[in-house]
Amino acid sequence: MIEIINLTKSYGGKHGRHYVFRNVNVTFPEGKSIGIVGRNGAGKTTLLRMLGGIDFPDSGEVRTKKTISWPVALRGGYHAQLTGRENATFVFRVFGLDEDAIQERLEFVKDFSELGEYFEMPLQTYSSGMHSRLGFAMSMAFEFDYYLIDEITAVGDRFFKRKSRKALTEKREKAAVIMVSHSLGSLADYCEMGLMIENQEVRLFDKIEDAISAYEKLEN
């Protein structure tokens, strides 16, 4: 369960303060996967970042006892001059794994990401597809209660897509995903519930289909 309590978030700029969320209250029920919809700039990524503990509300809080992944996105979280292996080692160390566990999971990541010899090369040599494959493999190397996924389900070629879909489906037996995607189809595939962000507020739907149709009405 994740509770969002009285959350307000704004960004200040030269042209005045812009509110993304105002006094939002919502509770994500235990173990339910949630797809987030909303227009560009509505605050989908900001919400994921606050759930992931890497952005902070002006007031209010996100309360949970569950473990939550970092937002797994297309870019970010890696150092361009370091190799895939060095970057992965860094993340494992930050999460407090011991050296044996690190070795074991490095093998998993190398294997899953299908990077081959690129795993030993600096990230600046990676294509954007390879970058996201590494990112996706990294998150799959952990056991979280919640996985935050930002537009990354459709990375890689056909074979990688199939594999990542399978991995994510397996994870969902024990864990839940909270995900943002412009592909409404994959939201419907992975999520039970839906959350729509609109006018600095959120609406939680028990069925993802209802959230998607509400969102489609919004667009017209």
Partner: peptide
């Protein structure tokens, strides 16, 4: 498994170690 509740100072120590090892290379 991971993210066992740990004292913040222990977390900070391992983060600093990981960053140090990274800076050493860059």
């Amino acid at each position: 498994m991971q993210q066992v509740q740990q004292h913040p100072l222990l977390i900070q120590r391992r983060v600093i170690f990981a960053l140090f090892a990274r800076e050493l290379k860059t």
